[in-house]
Design a protein around this nucleic acid. Structure first.
Length: 419
RNA sequence: GUGAGUGUAGCUCAGAUGGCAGAGCACUGGGUUGUGGCCCCAGUGGUCGUGGGUUCAAGUCCCAUCACUCACCCCA
Protein backbone atom coordinates (compact mmCIF):
# COMPACT_ATOMS: atom_id res chain seq x y z
CA UNK A 1 0.00 0.00 0.00
CA UNK A 2 1.43 3.27 -1.15
CA UNK A 3 1.21 6.29 1.06
CA UNK A 4 -0.11 9.50 -0.39
CA UNK A 5 -0.30 12.99 0.96
CA UNK A 6 -3.64 13.52 2.66
CA UNK A 7 -6.40 15.20 0.78
CA UNK A 8 -5.90 18.90 0.21
CA UNK A 9 -2.28 18.79 1.41
CA UNK A 10 0.39 19.24 -1.22
CA UNK A 11 4.12 18.72 -1.56
CA UNK A 12 6.09 21.63 -2.89
CA UNK A 13 8.76 19.97 -5.02
CA UNK A 14 12.33 21.21 -5.58
CA UNK A 15 11.49 22.58 -9.02
CA UNK A 16 8.78 24.76 -7.50
CA UNK A 17 10.56 25.96 -4.39
CA UNK A 18 12.50 28.62 -6.30
CA UNK A 19 9.29 30.46 -7.13
CA UNK A 20 8.22 30.30 -3.51
CA UNK A 21 11.45 31.66 -2.09
CA UNK A 22 11.67 34.42 -4.68
CA UNK A 23 8.14 35.45 -3.82
CA UNK A 24 8.77 35.40 -0.09
CA UNK A 25 12.07 37.22 -0.34
CA UNK A 26 10.57 39.93 -2.47
CA UNK A 27 7.78 40.31 0.07
CA UNK A 28 10.28 40.64 2.88
CA UNK A 29 12.28 43.19 0.92
CA UNK A 30 9.26 45.36 0.20
CA UNK A 31 7.87 45.07 3.71
CA UNK A 32 11.27 46.09 5.05
CA UNK A 33 11.11 49.27 2.96
CA UNK A 34 7.87 50.16 4.72
CA UNK A 35 9.22 49.40 8.17
CA UNK A 36 7.53 46.10 8.90
CA UNK A 37 9.06 43.51 11.20
CA UNK A 38 8.57 39.79 11.09
CA UNK A 39 6.78 37.92 13.84
CA UNK A 40 6.53 34.14 14.02
CA UNK A 41 3.56 32.59 15.70
CA UNK A 42 2.54 29.00 16.48
CA UNK A 43 0.44 26.83 14.24
CA UNK A 44 -1.72 25.63 17.14
CA UNK A 45 -3.80 27.80 19.39
CA UNK A 46 -6.63 27.17 21.75
CA UNK A 47 -9.79 26.70 19.74
CA UNK A 48 -11.44 29.38 21.79
CA UNK A 49 -9.14 32.06 20.39
CA UNK A 50 -10.40 31.56 16.85
CA UNK A 51 -14.01 31.06 17.85
CA UNK A 52 -13.94 34.37 19.68
CA UNK A 53 -11.91 36.26 17.10
CA UNK A 54 -13.31 35.10 13.80
CA UNK A 55 -16.87 34.54 15.00
CA UNK A 56 -18.72 31.44 16.15
CA UNK A 57 -21.15 31.58 13.26
CA UNK A 58 -18.67 31.98 10.46
CA UNK A 59 -18.09 29.00 8.17
CA UNK A 60 -14.45 28.97 9.16
CA UNK A 61 -15.21 28.34 12.79
CA UNK A 62 -18.39 26.34 12.51
CA UNK A 63 -17.22 23.78 9.98
CA UNK A 64 -13.74 24.33 8.61
CA UNK A 65 -11.36 24.15 11.53
CA UNK A 66 -9.08 21.26 12.30
CA UNK A 67 -9.66 20.82 16.00
CA UNK A 68 -8.65 18.18 18.49
CA UNK A 69 -8.00 17.61 22.15
CA UNK A 70 -4.45 17.12 23.29
CA UNK A 71 -3.43 14.53 25.88
CA UNK A 72 -4.44 16.80 28.63
CA UNK A 73 -7.86 17.45 27.16
CA UNK A 74 -7.20 21.01 26.00
CA UNK A 75 -9.27 21.94 23.00
CA UNK A 76 -6.87 23.08 20.28
CA UNK A 77 -7.16 24.15 16.68
CA UNK A 78 -4.75 24.36 13.77
CA UNK A 79 -4.83 27.99 12.76
CA UNK A 80 -7.20 28.86 9.91
CA UNK A 81 -5.73 32.38 9.68
CA UNK A 82 -3.07 34.46 11.37
CA UNK A 83 -4.62 37.64 12.68
CA UNK A 84 -6.07 36.17 15.86
CA UNK A 85 -2.71 34.69 16.80
CA UNK A 86 -0.87 37.92 16.15
CA UNK A 87 -3.23 39.84 18.39
CA UNK A 88 -2.94 37.17 21.05
CA UNK A 89 0.84 37.45 20.93
CA UNK A 90 0.63 41.22 20.88
CA UNK A 91 -1.46 41.25 24.03
CA UNK A 92 0.34 38.38 25.76
CA UNK A 93 3.73 40.06 25.43
CA UNK A 94 2.32 43.53 26.05
CA UNK A 95 3.87 44.91 22.89
CA UNK A 96 1.55 47.90 23.26
CA UNK A 97 3.71 49.04 26.14
CA UNK A 98 6.48 49.82 23.69
CA UNK A 99 5.95 51.75 20.52
CA UNK A 100 2.38 52.98 19.93
CA UNK A 101 2.31 51.58 16.41
CA UNK A 102 3.44 48.13 15.35
CA UNK A 103 3.84 47.01 11.78
CA UNK A 104 4.11 43.25 11.61
CA UNK A 105 4.12 40.47 9.09
CA UNK A 106 4.26 36.71 9.19
CA UNK A 107 4.01 33.90 6.69
CA UNK A 108 3.25 30.23 6.84
CA UNK A 109 0.70 27.46 6.51
CA UNK A 110 -2.97 27.79 7.45
CA UNK A 111 -5.52 25.00 7.66
CA UNK A 112 -9.13 24.85 6.66
CA UNK A 113 -11.20 21.73 6.11
CA UNK A 114 -12.81 22.54 2.79
CA UNK A 115 -13.35 20.65 -0.43
CA UNK A 116 -10.19 21.28 -2.47
CA UNK A 117 -10.42 22.99 -5.84
CA UNK A 118 -8.40 25.37 -7.97
CA UNK A 119 -6.71 27.85 -5.65
CA UNK A 120 -8.03 26.16 -2.54
CA UNK A 121 -6.24 23.63 -0.41
CA UNK A 122 -6.75 22.34 3.09
CA UNK A 123 -3.24 23.39 3.93
CA UNK A 124 -2.49 26.65 2.21
CA UNK A 125 -0.04 29.45 2.82
CA UNK A 126 -0.59 33.06 3.61
CA UNK A 127 1.58 36.11 3.93
CA UNK A 128 -0.08 38.15 6.61
CA UNK A 129 0.53 41.82 7.33
CA UNK A 130 -0.85 43.97 10.14
CA UNK A 131 -0.61 47.56 11.28
CA UNK A 132 -1.61 47.74 14.91
CA UNK A 133 -2.17 51.05 16.65
CA UNK A 134 -3.04 53.51 13.90
CA UNK A 135 -6.68 54.35 13.15
CA UNK A 136 -6.10 56.62 10.18
CA UNK A 137 -6.84 56.22 6.51
CA UNK A 138 -3.18 56.88 5.76
CA UNK A 139 -2.31 53.49 7.17
CA UNK A 140 -5.11 51.94 5.14
CA UNK A 141 -3.92 53.44 1.90
CA UNK A 142 -0.26 52.75 2.60
CA UNK A 143 -1.02 49.13 3.33
CA UNK A 144 -2.95 48.80 0.11
CA UNK A 145 -0.27 50.66 -1.79
CA UNK A 146 2.37 48.33 -0.39
CA UNK A 147 0.58 45.16 -1.42
CA UNK A 148 0.06 46.44 -4.95
CA UNK A 149 3.71 47.44 -5.02
CA UNK A 150 4.65 43.88 -4.13
CA UNK A 151 2.49 42.40 -6.86
CA UNK A 152 3.80 44.82 -9.41
CA UNK A 153 7.41 44.08 -8.54
CA UNK A 154 6.62 40.41 -9.02
CA UNK A 155 5.46 41.24 -12.52
CA UNK A 156 1.76 40.92 -11.75
CA UNK A 157 -0.10 43.78 -13.36
CA UNK A 158 -3.42 42.48 -14.56
CA UNK A 159 -5.05 42.84 -11.16
CA UNK A 160 -8.12 44.58 -9.83
CA UNK A 161 -8.27 46.32 -6.49
CA UNK A 162 -11.69 46.40 -4.88
CA UNK A 163 -12.43 48.49 -1.83
CA UNK A 164 -15.44 48.93 0.37
CA UNK A 165 -16.37 50.09 3.84
CA UNK A 166 -18.36 48.04 6.30
CA UNK A 167 -18.77 50.97 8.66
CA UNK A 168 -18.79 50.52 12.39
CA UNK A 169 -21.12 48.27 14.42
CA UNK A 170 -23.51 51.15 15.05
CA UNK A 171 -23.90 51.75 11.33
CA UNK A 172 -24.47 48.15 10.57
CA UNK A 173 -27.55 47.61 12.69
CA UNK A 174 -29.79 50.05 10.83
CA UNK A 175 -28.35 48.95 7.52
CA UNK A 176 -29.11 45.33 8.26
CA UNK A 177 -32.74 45.99 8.98
CA UNK A 178 -33.07 48.25 5.95
CA UNK A 179 -31.56 45.55 3.80
CA UNK A 180 -33.86 42.93 5.27
CA UNK A 181 -36.84 45.12 4.47
CA UNK A 182 -35.68 45.44 0.92
CA UNK A 183 -35.13 41.71 0.55
CA UNK A 184 -38.54 40.85 1.94
CA UNK A 185 -40.16 42.01 -1.27
CA UNK A 186 -38.09 39.52 -3.22
CA UNK A 187 -38.05 36.57 -0.86
CA UNK A 188 -39.64 34.15 -3.29
CA UNK A 189 -37.27 35.16 -6.07
CA UNK A 190 -34.07 34.65 -4.13
CA UNK A 191 -32.15 31.39 -4.38
CA UNK A 192 -32.66 28.98 -1.47
CA UNK A 193 -29.25 29.85 -0.03
CA UNK A 194 -30.06 33.52 -0.01
CA UNK A 195 -33.44 32.98 1.59
CA UNK A 196 -31.48 31.33 4.35
CA UNK A 197 -28.91 34.12 4.45
CA UNK A 198 -31.63 36.73 4.62
CA UNK A 199 -32.24 35.61 8.16
CA UNK A 200 -28.75 34.62 9.34
CA UNK A 201 -26.58 37.20 7.63
CA UNK A 202 -28.31 39.39 5.03
CA UNK A 203 -25.03 41.09 4.06
CA UNK A 204 -23.90 37.81 2.53
CA UNK A 205 -26.59 38.01 -0.11
CA UNK A 206 -24.36 40.63 -1.71
CA UNK A 207 -21.82 38.10 -2.89
CA UNK A 208 -24.22 35.45 -4.15
CA UNK A 209 -23.40 34.33 -7.68
CA UNK A 210 -26.88 33.38 -8.81
CA UNK A 211 -27.93 35.67 -11.66
CA UNK A 212 -31.33 36.57 -10.28
CA UNK A 213 -29.88 37.38 -6.85
CA UNK A 214 -27.21 39.57 -8.41
CA UNK A 215 -29.93 41.39 -10.32
CA UNK A 216 -31.99 41.92 -7.21
CA UNK A 217 -29.02 43.22 -5.30
CA UNK A 218 -28.22 45.80 -7.96
CA UNK A 219 -30.87 48.07 -6.52
CA UNK A 220 -30.41 47.09 -2.91
CA UNK A 221 -29.41 49.73 -0.38
CA UNK A 222 -25.65 49.74 0.09
CA UNK A 223 -23.60 49.95 3.23
CA UNK A 224 -21.84 53.02 1.88
CA UNK A 225 -25.08 55.00 2.14
CA UNK A 226 -25.40 54.11 5.78
CA UNK A 227 -21.98 55.13 7.01
CA UNK A 228 -21.89 57.51 9.93
CA UNK A 229 -20.10 60.83 9.59
CA UNK A 230 -16.77 59.46 10.81
CA UNK A 231 -16.86 56.30 8.78
CA UNK A 232 -17.84 58.18 5.64
CA UNK A 233 -15.04 60.64 6.21
CA UNK A 234 -12.60 57.78 6.73
CA UNK A 235 -13.63 56.16 3.47
CA UNK A 236 -13.43 59.41 1.56
CA UNK A 237 -9.93 60.08 2.85
CA UNK A 238 -8.89 56.58 1.89
CA UNK A 239 -10.08 57.23 -1.63
CA UNK A 240 -8.26 60.56 -1.71
CA UNK A 241 -5.00 58.99 -0.64
CA UNK A 242 -5.31 56.14 -3.10
CA UNK A 243 -5.89 58.66 -5.85
CA UNK A 244 -2.92 60.74 -4.75
CA UNK A 245 -0.81 57.59 -4.88
CA UNK A 246 -1.95 57.03 -8.45
CA UNK A 247 -3.78 53.81 -7.76
CA UNK A 248 -6.57 52.31 -9.80
CA UNK A 249 -9.37 50.85 -7.76
CA UNK A 250 -13.04 50.12 -7.91
CA UNK A 251 -15.47 50.83 -5.12
CA UNK A 252 -17.34 47.59 -4.72
CA UNK A 253 -20.20 47.93 -2.30
CA UNK A 254 -20.85 44.20 -2.66
CA UNK A 255 -17.47 43.27 -1.24
CA UNK A 256 -18.17 41.44 1.99
CA UNK A 257 -15.85 39.56 4.28
CA UNK A 258 -16.36 36.17 5.81
CA UNK A 259 -14.78 37.04 9.10
CA UNK A 260 -16.84 38.88 11.66
CA UNK A 261 -14.18 41.18 12.96
CA UNK A 262 -13.89 43.60 10.08
CA UNK A 263 -14.91 47.23 10.43
CA UNK A 264 -14.70 50.15 8.03
CA UNK A 265 -12.18 49.57 5.25
CA UNK A 266 -12.17 46.22 3.49
CA UNK A 267 -10.42 45.39 0.26
CA UNK A 268 -9.58 42.55 -2.03
CA UNK A 269 -7.15 42.06 -4.89
CA UNK A 270 -8.59 40.00 -7.71
CA UNK A 271 -7.19 38.37 -10.81
CA UNK A 272 -9.13 37.31 -13.89
CA UNK A 273 -6.81 34.32 -14.42
CA UNK A 274 -7.66 32.01 -11.57
CA UNK A 275 -11.21 30.80 -12.05
CA UNK A 276 -13.60 30.83 -9.14
CA UNK A 277 -11.04 31.55 -6.43
CA UNK A 278 -10.04 34.88 -7.87
CA UNK A 279 -9.01 36.72 -4.71
CA UNK A 280 -5.25 36.62 -4.28
CA UNK A 281 -5.26 38.94 -1.29
CA UNK A 282 -7.84 40.39 0.99
CA UNK A 283 -8.12 42.21 4.23
CA UNK A 284 -9.50 45.11 6.11
CA UNK A 285 -9.68 47.09 9.27
CA UNK A 286 -10.59 45.51 12.59
CA UNK A 287 -10.75 48.28 15.13
CA UNK A 288 -12.61 46.32 17.80
CA UNK A 289 -10.88 42.99 17.76
CA UNK A 290 -8.21 43.96 20.26
CA UNK A 291 -10.84 44.89 22.80
CA UNK A 292 -12.74 41.69 22.04
CA UNK A 293 -9.61 39.87 23.15
CA UNK A 294 -9.52 41.89 26.36
CA UNK A 295 -6.54 43.87 25.21
CA UNK A 296 -6.32 47.66 25.32
CA UNK A 297 -8.66 49.14 22.71
CA UNK A 298 -6.38 49.55 19.71
CA UNK A 299 -7.31 50.09 16.08
CA UNK A 300 -5.70 47.84 13.50
CA UNK A 301 -5.77 46.86 9.86
CA UNK A 302 -4.31 43.94 8.00
CA UNK A 303 -4.46 41.69 5.00
CA UNK A 304 -3.49 38.23 3.90
CA UNK A 305 -2.08 37.08 0.60
CA UNK A 306 -2.96 33.59 -0.62
CA UNK A 307 0.46 32.31 -1.61
CA UNK A 308 -0.67 29.35 -3.69
CA UNK A 309 -2.85 31.63 -5.76
CA UNK A 310 -0.03 34.05 -6.41
CA UNK A 311 2.39 31.22 -7.14
CA UNK A 312 0.01 29.90 -9.74
CA UNK A 313 0.11 33.26 -11.50
CA UNK A 314 3.88 33.41 -11.17
CA UNK A 315 4.42 29.93 -12.56
CA UNK A 316 2.86 30.96 -15.85
CA UNK A 317 5.62 33.52 -16.26
CA UNK A 318 9.23 33.18 -17.32
CA UNK A 319 11.77 31.85 -14.87
CA UNK A 320 15.17 33.35 -14.24
CA UNK A 321 18.03 31.32 -15.70
CA UNK A 322 18.97 28.45 -13.46
CA UNK A 323 22.14 28.61 -11.46
CA UNK A 324 24.54 25.68 -11.51
CA UNK A 325 27.61 24.56 -9.60
CA UNK A 326 30.90 26.42 -10.01
CA UNK A 327 32.59 23.14 -10.81
CA UNK A 328 31.80 19.59 -11.75
CA UNK A 329 34.61 17.09 -11.34
CA UNK A 330 34.63 14.32 -13.92
CA UNK A 331 36.86 11.63 -12.51
CA UNK A 332 37.74 8.45 -14.37
CA UNK A 333 38.98 5.43 -12.49
CA UNK A 334 39.05 4.68 -8.78
CA UNK A 335 42.26 6.60 -8.02
CA UNK A 336 41.05 9.77 -9.65
CA UNK A 337 37.61 9.41 -8.03
CA UNK A 338 39.19 9.13 -4.60
CA UNK A 339 41.38 12.18 -5.15
CA UNK A 340 38.39 14.12 -6.49
CA UNK A 341 36.25 13.12 -3.56
CA UNK A 342 38.70 14.78 -1.17
CA UNK A 343 39.10 17.88 -3.37
CA UNK A 344 35.36 18.32 -3.37
CA UNK A 345 35.18 18.59 0.37
CA UNK A 346 38.15 20.99 0.46
CA UNK A 347 36.58 23.20 -2.17
CA UNK A 348 33.24 23.30 -0.38
CA UNK A 349 35.09 24.39 2.74
CA UNK A 350 36.32 27.32 0.65
CA UNK A 351 32.78 28.17 -0.37
CA UNK A 352 32.78 26.62 -3.81
CA UNK A 353 29.68 24.90 -5.07
CA UNK A 354 30.93 21.71 -6.65
CA UNK A 355 29.63 18.29 -7.56
CA UNK A 356 30.73 14.95 -8.93
CA UNK A 357 29.11 11.71 -9.93
CA UNK A 358 29.73 8.82 -7.55
CA UNK A 359 28.47 6.22 -9.97
CA UNK A 360 31.78 5.57 -11.78
CA UNK A 361 30.36 6.15 -15.23
CA UNK A 362 32.06 7.06 -18.49
CA UNK A 363 33.19 10.55 -19.40
CA UNK A 364 30.31 11.14 -21.75
CA UNK A 365 27.80 10.36 -19.05
CA UNK A 366 29.59 12.61 -16.61
CA UNK A 367 29.68 15.45 -19.10
CA UNK A 368 25.98 15.03 -19.66
CA UNK A 369 25.43 15.09 -15.93
CA UNK A 370 27.50 18.28 -15.62
CA UNK A 371 25.49 19.84 -18.41
CA UNK A 372 22.22 18.93 -16.79
CA UNK A 373 23.34 20.57 -13.57
CA UNK A 374 24.36 23.69 -15.53
CA UNK A 375 27.89 23.46 -14.16
CA UNK A 376 30.06 26.41 -15.14
CA UNK A 377 33.27 24.37 -15.42
CA UNK A 378 34.30 20.76 -15.50
CA UNK A 379 37.58 19.40 -14.20
CA UNK A 380 38.51 16.21 -16.03
CA UNK A 381 40.86 13.85 -14.23
CA UNK A 382 41.78 10.36 -15.43
CA UNK A 383 44.81 8.10 -15.17
CA UNK A 384 46.78 10.17 -17.71
CA UNK A 385 46.16 13.36 -15.78
CA UNK A 386 47.08 11.79 -12.46
CA UNK A 387 50.34 10.55 -13.99
CA UNK A 388 51.12 13.97 -15.44
CA UNK A 389 49.98 15.77 -12.32
CA UNK A 390 47.66 18.08 -14.20
CA UNK A 391 43.95 17.98 -14.95
CA UNK A 392 41.90 19.43 -17.79
CA UNK A 393 39.68 22.35 -16.91
CA UNK A 394 36.84 22.94 -19.35
CA UNK A 395 34.67 26.02 -19.48
CA UNK A 396 31.21 24.72 -20.33
CA UNK A 397 29.93 27.80 -22.10
CA UNK A 398 33.01 28.71 -24.17
CA UNK A 399 34.23 25.09 -24.50
CA UNK A 400 37.78 26.30 -23.82
CA UNK A 401 40.04 23.80 -22.12
CA UNK A 402 43.38 24.16 -20.42
CA UNK A 403 45.63 22.17 -18.14
CA UNK A 404 45.84 22.97 -14.45
CA UNK A 405 48.38 21.50 -12.02
CA UNK A 406 46.64 19.13 -9.64
CA UNK A 407 48.57 20.04 -6.51
CA UNK A 408 47.18 23.58 -6.58
CA UNK A 409 43.88 22.80 -8.24
CA UNK A 410 41.74 23.62 -5.24
CA UNK A 411 43.20 27.10 -4.91
CA UNK A 412 42.95 27.70 -8.63
CA UNK A 413 39.28 26.83 -8.69
CA UNK A 414 38.69 28.98 -5.64
CA UNK A 415 40.36 31.91 -7.41
CA UNK A 416 38.17 31.46 -10.49
CA UNK A 417 34.93 30.90 -8.63
CA UNK A 418 35.17 33.83 -6.30
CA UNK A 419 35.54 36.39 -9.04
C1' G B 1 -21.68 18.65 2.54
C1' U B 2 -23.73 18.74 -3.12
C1' G B 3 -22.84 18.17 -8.54
C1' A B 4 -20.03 17.01 -12.95
C1' G B 5 -15.57 15.14 -15.24
C1' U B 6 -11.07 12.16 -15.04
C1' G B 7 -7.81 7.83 -13.19
C1' U B 8 -3.06 3.42 -18.52
C1' A B 9 5.18 4.11 -17.89
C1' G B 10 8.65 9.34 -13.89
C1' C B 11 5.62 13.32 -17.15
C1' U B 12 1.85 14.33 -21.28
C1' C B 13 -1.46 11.11 -23.37
C1' A B 14 -3.21 7.12 -27.40
C1' G B 15 -5.58 2.35 -26.87
C1' A B 16 -14.28 2.09 -31.74
C1' U B 17 -17.18 -2.59 -31.82
C1' G B 18 -13.91 -7.26 -25.25
C1' G B 19 -8.65 -10.89 -28.21
C1' C B 20 -0.49 -10.65 -26.75
C1' A B 21 -0.37 -2.97 -23.11
C1' G B 22 1.52 1.63 -26.99
C1' A B 23 3.72 6.72 -28.50
C1' G B 24 6.29 11.26 -27.44
C1' C B 25 9.25 13.43 -23.63
C1' A B 26 12.51 11.96 -19.62
C1' C B 27 16.18 8.26 -18.03
C1' U B 28 20.37 4.53 -19.33
C1' G B 29 23.73 2.72 -23.09
C1' G B 30 25.82 3.01 -28.00
C1' G B 31 27.13 5.71 -32.69
C1' U B 32 32.27 9.04 -30.77
C1' U B 33 36.79 2.37 -26.63
C1' G B 34 38.16 10.04 -22.70
C1' U B 35 34.43 15.37 -23.82
C1' G B 36 27.83 18.10 -22.68
C1' G B 37 23.60 20.39 -25.65
C1' C B 38 21.70 18.79 -31.78
C1' C B 39 21.06 14.20 -34.62
C1' C B 40 20.65 8.68 -35.28
C1' C B 41 20.12 3.63 -33.03
C1' A B 42 18.93 0.56 -28.95
C1' G B 43 17.40 -0.41 -23.97
C1' U B 44 15.15 0.09 -18.86
C1' G B 45 10.48 1.22 -17.03
C1' G B 46 3.24 -0.93 -16.20
C1' U B 47 -0.31 -4.99 -9.81
C1' C B 48 -3.98 -0.32 -16.62
C1' G B 49 -6.43 3.75 -9.04
C1' U B 50 -8.45 -0.38 -5.70
C1' G B 51 -11.97 -4.52 -4.72
C1' G B 52 -15.65 -7.54 -6.57
C1' G B 53 -18.73 -9.38 -10.83
C1' U B 54 -19.94 -11.00 -16.18
C1' U B 55 -16.96 -13.82 -19.87
C1' C B 56 -13.15 -19.07 -22.78
C1' A B 57 -10.92 -14.06 -22.51
C1' A B 58 -11.68 -7.38 -19.31
C1' G B 59 -7.44 -1.38 -19.84
C1' U B 60 -12.24 -2.00 -22.54
C1' C B 61 -18.72 -4.25 -20.03
C1' C B 62 -21.40 -4.07 -14.81
C1' C B 63 -21.30 -2.85 -9.39
C1' A B 64 -18.81 -0.78 -5.39
C1' U B 65 -14.93 2.05 -3.42
C1' C B 66 -10.83 5.51 -3.26
C1' A B 67 -8.22 9.51 -5.28
C1' C B 68 -7.64 13.70 -8.42
C1' U B 69 -9.82 17.92 -11.10
C1' C B 70 -13.41 21.70 -11.73
C1' A B 71 -17.77 24.01 -9.94
C1' C B 72 -21.40 25.05 -5.83
C1' C B 73 -20.61 26.60 -0.83
C1' C B 74 -16.92 29.65 1.41
C1' C B 75 -12.58 32.25 1.31
C1' A B 76 -6.58 34.05 0.77
Amino acid sequence: MQYKAVRGFKDILPDQVGTWTRFEQEAKRIFGLFGYREIRIPILESMELFARGIGEDTDIVSKEMYTFRDRRGNHLAMRPEATASILRAFIEHKLYKGSPVHKLYTMGPMFRYERPQKGRRRQFHQIDVEIIGDPGPRSDSELIYMIMQLFSSLGLDDLELHINSLGCPTDRGPFRSKLKDYLKDYTSQLCPDCQERMETNPLRVFDCKVDRCIEIMKDAPTMLDFLCEDCAQHFKQLEDYLTQLGMDYVVNSHLMRGLDYYTRTTFEVQTPELGAQNAIAGGGRYDNLMADFDGPATPAIGFAIGQERVIELLEGREEAGEQGPDLFVAALGTDAEDRAFVWLQEMRKKGIWCEMDYRSSGLKAQMRHADRLHAKRVLIVGDDELAKGSGILRDMSTKEQREVPLDTVVDEIARLSHR
